[in-house]
Write a protein that binds this DNA or RNA. Structure first.
Lengths: 179, 179
DNA sequence: GTAATAGTACTCGGATAGTAAGTGTCCGAGTTAACCGGG
DNA sequence: CCCGGTTAACTCGGACACTTACTATCCGAGTACTATTAC
């Protein structure tokens, strides 16, 4: 139905959140997921995919969490999409042309089917066009666009939310429980 | 995995075949399918979809068959793709932005989420680019490209194959059986 | 005071369901044209 | 000679099974930091 599924959408929003989070806060996968009510376990898996692609770097352990592995200006939407859905192709040529009945009986499909199928070629051109478009958009641009729309109050409260999560994480095992 | 699946590939090749078939031969869905060893029943379904989209016109009955409903010069690859996979989108926005925890407790997501999501906008731009590319390519161009690669002999034999199919269809119930 | 231990909150990776869409098949119904036999 | 019935070969449309990939969840294992405890 759609080439890029929920994975790409989740990943993109998570990265936007990560780029907007307070500097050095290193939110955990749970933080990032719950902030936008995404399935936590699923986001966890996405994070490891993003890490493999070199977009984020994680730190393990009790104070662990995620942070961008490169400046947001350099991270393109194409890179994000390919990180979590590397197999996404506009079209997969099954080489129908070579199945023609003309070939089967006597002479094999040699010269006539040489090179790339015309239809496949057109599809590849279209795919290249869409990728070119996606590679133009960077995470930084997207964050700027979102920030321009949102209120200052929203930003402040979001930052506070993340700081609260991090703080809560730390104090939770100095004092065992809290009201 | 791929936005455009086998349906689009089959449809495209069938239309190429149809455009290349002898004038007035009106091949049946079976003819078109067997010519390239495609699943017959499936091609039949595709043909009705292509008809609904106005790309081909069918004639029922014993001498029935299919023919292009418009000049091949006017039929774009985009039209073909959309005829059989109209739901194909590059990206389906689930409006994740509106699920943010910041909204749930007191104030609803009003102004900040107004307009289209930044990520969605970028995806739409990419989709538009690929569609633009596909709408540039016409069936006539594709047929020309294929014809340029194939031998004259291949063409002649293909035409003969179709004429044989049509002829066989007619004589098969003047003389009941044939050797 | 320093070192070993326990506990906490993460990440990591694989195994496993559930679900939706594409792919492919089958069957009955309707349509057109040719042929065949009766008037 | 003409006309209605029969048959053949299509199209049309819906119903159904199969496969695959995405989405989502769960669990055991590893890791880093902190606090506690023992020496």
């Amino acid at each position: 139905m759609a080439l890029y599924g929920a994975s790409v959408e989740y990943a993109a929003h998570v990265l936007v959140t990560l780029a907007s989070a307070p500097a050095g806060s290193a939110p955990s996968a749970s933080d990032l997921a719950e902030y936008q009510k995404l399935p936590v376990a699923y986001v966890r898996k996405l994070m490891t995919q993003l890490e493999k692609a070199g977009l984020v770097s994680g730190r393990e352990g009790i104070r662990g969490g995620w942070s961008l592995a490169m400046p947001a200006e350099e991270m393109t939407l194409l890179a994000i999409a390919e990180a979590v859905e590397s197999q996404a192709r506009l079209f997969l040529c099954r080489n129908v042309r070579a199945r023609c009945v003309m070939w089967s009986d006597d002479n094999p499909p040699s010269a006539a089917v040489a090179g790339i199928c015309e239809i496949h070629a057109a599809m590849l051109a279209a795919e290249a066009a869409s990728r070119r478009e996606l590679s133009k958009r960077t995470l930084a641009e997207i964050v700027r666009g979102i920030r321009a729309k949102s209120s200052r109050d929203f930003e402040v409260r979001s930052q506070a939310w993340f700081m609260d999560r991090v703080g809560r994480r730390r104090q939770s095992h100095s004092s065992q429980e809290q009201p």
